[in-house]
Simulated scan of single mutants.
Amino acid sequence: MSLLPATAPRSLLSIRLSILSEETTSPVRQELDLVRMAVERGCRVIGIARDLGVSATKVPPWKRPQLGDWISNRAPEFDEILFWKLDRFVRRISDLHLMIEWCKEFQKTLAATNDPIDLSTEFGQFMVTIIAGMARIEAANTGVRVESLWKFSRTVEKRWIIGKPVYGYRTKDEGDGTKSLVINPEKARAPMAMS
């Protein structure tokens, strides 16, 4: 990237993840893909907005801790915002429309590694709106599926459905393809603190 001309477009990378856990590799994968995309586009990466543990459904881009600061206070420093997928950027169509209007006003562009986005044409803006609509539907469907799973789990006696058990418990394979939740004798009693 040091070989890029001084006039090369300046890219801000936006990385977002709703639920951050120790096991996830998504933020690292997003960053690597976005740096690669910036290089392929001949752009200079000038910053990375990492909003981890932030829901796109609940928090629009301009209100996120890091991306919001760039949008509100540092807009002259970048020319485009790169993100992994549209649903990593926004989940609400209204938020997308506001970001498109903001981009027009401040002469910025948006691009994603895994979605065809081109804000320079009316058709491109229309396609972005359709993709955002699909992301919103998927978010709603995920909520319905999770709610249904937990309702079902409450009707099945002594059956563990999904997830990591709370401290002091473990799962036990029942031999019929199901699991139950049982006390873990090694962790059931936490040692008393010495006073």
Score class of each variant (00 low, 15 high):
Arg170Ser: 03
Tyr169Ile: 04
Val182Glu: 11
Pro27Ser: 03
Arg154Cys: 06
Ile46Glu: 02
Arg145Thr: 08
Thr57Ile: 13
Trp160Leu: 03
Cys103Pro: 06
Pro116Met: 10
Ser72Met: 03
Thr155Asn: 09
Arg41Pro: 02
Leu98Gly: 07
Gly175Phe: 02
Val90Asn: 14
Tyr169Ala: 02
Thr24Ala: 06
Ile137Ala: 13
Leu12Met: 07
Arg29Glu: 10
Val128Gly: 14
Leu96Lys: 04
Thr57Ser: 14
Pro9Leu: 07
Thr57Arg: 06
Pro5Lys: 04
Met127Thr: 10
Ile46Pro: 11
Arg92Cys: 05
Ser180Glu: 09
Lys108Val: 09
Leu52Cys: 15
Glu22Cys: 01
Arg88Ile: 11
Ala56Asp: 04
Met37Tyr: 12
Leu86Tyr: 03
Leu34Asp: 01
Glu147Asp: 05
Phe126Glu: 14
Ala75Phe: 04
Met1Trp: 03
Thr178Tyr: 08
Ala111Gly: 15
Glu174Phe: 04
Val182Leu: 10
Lys158Tyr: 05
Phe123Tyr: 05
Leu32Ile: 05
Asp33Cys: 08
Glu22Tyr: 00
Gln107Met: 01
Asn141Trp: 04
Trp160Tyr: 11
Val59Asn: 05
Ala188Arg: 06
Ala190Asn: 01
Pro185Gly: 13
Trp102Leu: 08
Lys187Asn: 14
Arg64Cys: 11
Arg16Lys: 09
Glu105Gly: 03
Ala75Trp: 00
Ala112Glu: 04
Glu138Thr: 02
